[in-house]
């Protein structure tokens, strides 16, 4: 496919292990299109996080080519990688990783400050993002005063506020109960449909998998199965 926003060819990732190394990814070929709602699934240790890391320009491939939004990830220096993440990528973690001293509004505002948006632009975008995740009534709360589900919704708003092209989410539901997991996934599905933001998950949670429209199964650092799921 020509206009894939993530294009991976022959990706190999080795982790040094003393004198030898451990090969975590063993030749991955993968294309992801704009607007996908896709999950990397597979057993623990299969390389899901490793792959997400490389796509997120946080780590470098050992071999192969990784192109994200037209950028050769392995050729970016630290600063360029930071810029790519800042401008185009949203991250959602298993632990929400909100900044504890700031309230909900400020946590969501932070990425926009880094992007040097004007006060008006920031306000509009933050309120929009908080409306998406349904947290307008908790604007002034600190993370410590929120439930896990609410924290993860703030994290989603923080990832979405700059309207990124791609959201990378590593086990976003691992710390949530079923009801909250579904709420969050529905929110993300909605954003995916309304904004055409590409979502890429790493997960082995069946609840997440049930929402995916494409599931890429990794096993031992290789793609074992790549399946389009027909939604009704």
């Amino acid at each position: 496919m020509e206009n894939a926003i993530i294009k991976i060819r022959g990706l190999v990732k080795d982790y040094p292990m003393g004198v030898t190394y451990f090969r975590a990814l063993k030749g991955i070929n993968l294309d992801v299109q704009q607007g996908e709602f896709t999950g990397l699934v597979g057993p623990s240790g299969s390389g899901k996080t490793t792959l997400l890391n490389i796509i997120g320009a946080l780590d470098n491939p050992t071999q192969g080519e990784v192109e994200v939004l037209g950028y050769q990830v392995d050729k970016l220096n630290h600063k360029q990688a930071a810029r790519l993440r800042n401008e185009n990528l949203g991250f959602i973690f298993q632990t929400y990783n909100l900044l504890p001293v700031y309230n909900v509004y400020e946590n969501v505002e932070f990425p926009l400050l880094l992007l040097k948006k004007s006060a008006d632009e920031r306000k509009e975008a933050v309120i929009q993002a908080l409306e998406w995740v349904g947290l307008m009534d908790k604007i002034k709360s600190r993370p410590a005063q929120l439930s896990g589900g609410e924290c993860q919704r703030v994290a989603i708003a923080r990832a979405m506020v700059k309207n990124p092209r791609i959201v990378l989410a590593d086990e976003p539901t691992a710390n949530l109960d079923a009801a909250n997991s579904h709420h969050i996934l529905q929110t993300m599905v909605k954003l995916n449909q309304e904004l055409r933001t590409t979502f890429l998950f790493a997960t082995h949670d069946d609840k997440v998998i049930s929402y995916l429209r494409r599931a890429i199964t990794l096993r031992d650092g290789m793609i074992a199965e790549d399946k389009i799921i027909q939604t009704t």
Partner: peptide
């Protein structure tokens, strides 16, 4: 440590 980690992930540069 954690805060700085997220900020790096979000896309703040080390220099920043």
């Amino acid at each position: 440590y954690g805060e700085i980690g997220v900020r790096l992930a979000i896309g703040e540069s080390k220099g920043g």
